[in-house]
Structure formats: structure tokens, C-alpha cells
Design a protein around this nucleic acid. Structure first.
Lengths: 217, 217
DNA sequence: CAATTTAGTGAACAGTTGTACACTTTTTAC
DNA sequence: GTAAAAAGTGTACAACTGTTCACTAAATTG
């Protein structure tokens, strides 16, 4: 048994098993069942810790799940913020955003696998939490789109509809990509290309769009 | 204890518990956990039968799952065939197809809930089976689209891409609709309207599209 | 260094799981 | 109507589940 020597700090050590539990859960989700069918004992075993130690860090398996969710979206939100700040999406920009995003997905595979399986398969609270985050992205994208000169006469409802279309499409392709083996670079590249084309095509459609006027709010 | 008297036929009676098991599983999935986290005993209990009786009908829980999947898509395929035969999608047609489809979803809620939760949350074989069915729909739609006069110069790859976009969008909205309560008619109608607009928008984009020539096959 | 808080351990519990086996009951076939 | 086949029952068991409790070991505090 090699004794861990890593972060020697007094306080840093506290969270080490906590992190081990989270990593164990992510690993199990990535290569096995969805989170909802993981057992507490299974996770602690993989984390190299006795079952009862779990309770020092989480009250519950579902608490662990929510923590993993927070962690997943915390960094994702940050990345999205950076992408957004670059500029308004013109044709060139679409390609760049998609590359950045899908690259991020690849580098955080286990987190995305976790979220993907929970989106529709998880508990009610879990599902709601994820959908709230997605709706946030949609709203932000709609706000960005509102600045397009040729969309000034489009109702806010329709802007929301368009943004939903973009986000849903990218989410779907993300999930398809996650089904590919981790080192299938060709397949992953295909997904990237497809995503870029789809978003481009949507923008063509958006440019043609004329809303009926907004109904009474 | 009221004795069941329902389908009195000699042969019809054989499959009755089999159907009861399937219904029980669907019910549990609809109002509880994903299929993967159902237990054999849970299902038999709900079906009003002793656990060991299960094995007279299915070797396994996963066998039950695959049967449910078949059942789900068997009728769905049939409906899609009818929708397709009506005519080529013009603007009027989009609305009609979407109405037919979403109406069908509403009338087969439990089946769709089951499939929806298994799409990304199920076992590997389950996921693959569903994705194969979806890919089938995509190919058929791509074939239909190939007949558009303004798409004769579009590569088959791009046709596939467009069809994927349509199907993915409808699937996503289907899943969102399933999250709504069964009697939230207003919300469900909103989904229908959104779906119709999204597909219409995509067709606007499609009409603008110009492919690069097909690469070497 | 001594006292205290915190993280991790190990045994034990009641409940649930999938499945095997021998059985009774019902349905089908002749 | 009787024999054979199929469907359903009940008991049993070993494996695993979440959680409890009293405990030891370690880190933090004064």
C-alpha cells in the first residue's frame, strides 16, 4: 500500500475523501449505470473508504448527486461566459464557439456523461435543476440574438423559440458524441462538423423569419 | 378478493400476466424511477403476482425492457408510416404532422416516458436499440427531403444533417412535454406550437442551403 | 502538551434483492 | 375425462442494501 502524500495541508486534507467520493461516483456513472442506480456502499468501496465514512461528507446519495451537478455546471457556466464575451455570432464565430464547446465537452467527459444521464433519467429534483440551467443558457442566447439587426422585429417569444432550437440541437449532438468511444476522434469530429452546420442552417432560417406581433403579455 | 373475469378466451388468458408485468413496469417508470432501477420483485408485486412467476414470461429484467422497447416502437413506426404517406411536407403539412405526432405522444404517454428515460439513462443495449430506431426515422425523413426540388444539389450527408436536426428538435420538445403534468393542456399546446415553428424555421434554413459537393464516398 | 473537534473504522441491524427448488393449480391436447 | 404441459405459488438462501452506534486515529485548538 503506497501511502498518499499529496496535498499536505491541514485543511486541504479534509476534503480529500470528499473529492474521492465524487470522483468514484463519476467514474461509476461513466462506465456503468446511471447515478440513480448507484449504491452508497458501491461508491464508498470505489473511493477506498468504509461505508459509514460517507455520512461525514454527504447526508445522502441525492446530496452527492446535487453536489456533482453544481460542480458540473459551475465550470461550464464559466466557459460559456467567456465564449459569449468574444463577440456576436457571425459565420466565423459559430465555428469557433462550437470548437471551444465541444473541446470542453471532451475534456470533461465524465461530468457531461453524468449530466446527460440525469437529464431525463434522474430524480425529479435533479431533472428540474438541470433544466433550469439549460433554460438559463437559452435565455442568454436569446438576449444575444436580440442584438442582431435583422431580428429587431421578432417577438421575444420567437427569440426564445430560436434559442431553444439552437441549444436543444447542440445538447442532442453532445449526447450523441458521448456515446462514441473516448478515442474515436473521427466520429467526434463528425459531430463537431454536424453541429456547426446545423447552427449555421438555423441562422439561415432565422434570417428569413418574420414574427407575428407579440400578443398581449 | 375479487376474482378477475376479464378476457375469457382460452388462449388470450395465457398472456395476461405477461401484459400485467409490462403494464406494471410502465406504470412504475411513469411515476417513479427509471427502468434500470426497478427491481424484479417490485414489478411482480405491482402486477399482483409472486416474484418467481416472472420467469415464466421473461428470463430477465432486461428482457422485459427490450420487450417494452419493441412494443413502444412497433406502434410508433406504424403511425409514422401513415404520416409520411400523406404527402410531401409543405407549410400546411408541417402543422398537420406535428399535431398528429404530439397527439400520439399524449395518448401513449407511459411508453414515451419509458423510452425517454432509457434513451440516455438505460443500459448500453437499450440505448443502442433506441438510437437505431431514431436513426431510421432520420433516414426516412432525409429520403423524403431529397424529393424537394430546391434540394437536388444538396449532398446526402447534408440531407442527413438536416433530417437529424429536425428529428433531434422534435425529440427534445417531446421530452420537455413529458415533463409537464398530464393535464397541463396549455403547456402542451405551447410545445406543439413551438415544435411547429422550429420545424418551419429549419425549412427556411434548408431552402437557403447550398452544399459543397459530396466528398469521395 | 493536553483538550477537543473531526474523519474514518468495524460490527451489527433489519430490509430487500435475484434466483433455485419443489409444490399445486390451471390450461391445453388427445 | 384423463394425461401432459404450462402458469403460478411458497419457502429458502446468500448477497447486498442504508443506517445505527460505540470506537479509534488524527488533526486543530488553546
Amino acid at each position: 500500500m503506497t501511502r498518499e502524500t499529496a496535498p499536505r495541508g491541514r485543511k486541504a486534507r479534509k476534503g480529500r475523501t470528499r473529492q474521492a467520493l465524487m470522483d468514484a461516483a463519476l467514474d461509476l456513472v461513466a462506465k456503468k449505470a446511471p447515478f440513480s442506480s448507484l449504491s452508497l456502499r458501491e461508491v464508498t468501496k470505489k473511493a477506498g473508504v468504509v461505508p459509514t465514512a460517507f455520512y461525514r461528507h454527504f447526508t445522502d446519495m441525492s446530496a452527492l448527486g446535487l453536489t456533482l451537478l453544481d460542480e458540473s455546471f459551475r465550470t461550464l457556466r464559466q466557459m460559456m461566459r467567456e465564449v459569449r464575451q468574444h463577440q456576436l455570432p457571425n459565420e466565423q464565430m459559430i465555428r469557433g464557439s462550437m470548437e471551444t464547446y465541444f473541446n470542453y465537452v471532451r475534456n470533461n467527459r465524465t461530468y457531461f456523461l453524468f449530466v446527460s444521464k440525469e437529464l431525463y433519467g434522474g430524480s425529479a429534483t435533479m431533472r428540474q435543476a438541470i433544466r433550469r440551467e439549460i433554460r438559463l443558457f437559452v435565455s442568454e442566447l436569446a438576449m444575444d440574438m436580440a442584438r442582431f439587426p435583422f431580428l429587431i422585429n421578432v417577438s421575444s417569444q420567437d427569440l426564445q423559440m430560436m434559442a431553444t432550437l439552437v441549444v436543444n440541437s447542440v445538447v442532442a449532438l453532445t449526447q450523441e458524441m458521448l456515446e462514441l468511444s473516448e478515442d474515436d476522434e473521427a466520429g467526434q469530429n463528425e459531430m463537431l462538423i454536424m453541429a456547426e452546420k446545423q447552427v449555421r442552417l438555423i441562422y439561415f432560417g432565422v434570417a428569413q423569419w418574420r414574427s407575428e406581433p407579440d400578443r398581449i403579455a
